[in-house]
Amino acid sequence: MISFQWHRMFMLLTWGLTIAAFVLIFLELKDWSAEDNPHAILGCATTVLAFVQPIGAAFRPHPDSRRRPIFNWLHWLVGNVAHILGIVTIFFATKLTKAELPDWMDWILVGYVAFHVAVHLILSISSIVSERNNGKRVNSFPMKEMTSSRSPLHSPERKQDSPHSCFRKFMLGVYILVILLLVAALIIITVFAPIEDSWVKFQNMIAPNNTQGQ
């Protein structure tokens, strides 16, 4: 399925970015953080979970294996725990002295969490309604519908959009747009930290003080 291909691509992208960030942090600090903040420990735990997630997926049992349900739940659990830990880790990052992040950044993160949960619930409810309209059981783990060659099953029914698919695609588009804007904002705040001082310098640069030259 196309959704599985996207899932795999984003999982590998997340894996690569997480490992790169982990390495860059240690190259920058050259030591363990001396601050009394759980950010470092939580970050390491998140990195470990993100690291093993795609490796475990590569060794998933055959769809007909009795161990496949165990894998499905473990894969789901590790992914969600890594996601939650990652968000919590970012919250603690705002308190790091070296980061110089503003206190109001917490509200941006709170907004993200609320938005993510809301979209997740909306899409989940939409999927349940769609599956019921199709008279099918909700399948939370589409990976188990793979053939022995681990390629998606192809059938005319799978090529047809399920009910409410347009709505879900619209919500996905909105979600991606909001997340991209959020990521851009967080990058700007982090790169130009302390952002308040950088903003003042920017204002002075484009609008010099009237007293200059007098």
Rank of each mutant, 00 (worst) to 15 (best):
M171S: 04
L172P: 01
N209G: 10
S127L: 15
S33D: 11
I19W: 07
F92Q: 04
E100Q: 13
V52S: 01
P156I: 00
V81S: 02
V117Y: 00
A34M: 09
V200G: 02
S127H: 14
E157F: 04
F10S: 07
I41S: 13
W73S: 11
L77R: 11
I25P: 07
K159R: 12
V138P: 04
L96Q: 06
L27C: 13
A114P: 04
D106P: 08
F202D: 07
N133K: 15
N37P: 02
I19C: 05
W15F: 10
Q160W: 03
P142A: 00
R158A: 06
T46E: 01
I90F: 02
G213Q: 14
L42H: 03
T211L: 15
T18V: 08
G111P: 02
S162E: 13
G173K: 00
P38I: 00
G16K: 01
A185R: 03
V113M: 00
A93H: 02
W73K: 15
V200H: 09
V81G: 03
D197W: 08
E35P: 00
G43N: 04
P163N: 06
D106W: 09
W104Q: 07
W104M: 07
F26C: 08
L109P: 00
A45R: 09
Y175A: 07
M105L: 13
H7L: 10
L101W: 06
I90M: 07
D31I: 10
A99G: 03
K169D: 10
A58W: 15
E145G: 11
S155Y: 01
K201S: 11
W76S: 11
V200Y: 06
R132H: 13
T47S: 05
M11L: 09
V138G: 05
A57E: 08
P142R: 03
H164R: 15
A118G: 06
I188N: 07
D197I: 09
H120K: 14
H83I: 15
S162M: 13
L17Q: 06
T211E: 15
L177F: 11
E100P: 03
N210E: 15
N210D: 15
T97K: 09
T14V: 07
F26E: 12
D106H: 13
R132S: 12
I188D: 05
L180Q: 08
F92Y: 09
V174G: 02
S148M: 09
A184D: 02
L172G: 12
T94L: 10
N204G: 11
V138D: 08
W15N: 03
H83G: 14
M171K: 02
Q5T: 15
N133Y: 12
P152C: 02
N80Y: 10
F202H: 08
R8Y: 11
P38L: 00
W107L: 09
I19Y: 04
A50D: 04
E28S: 15
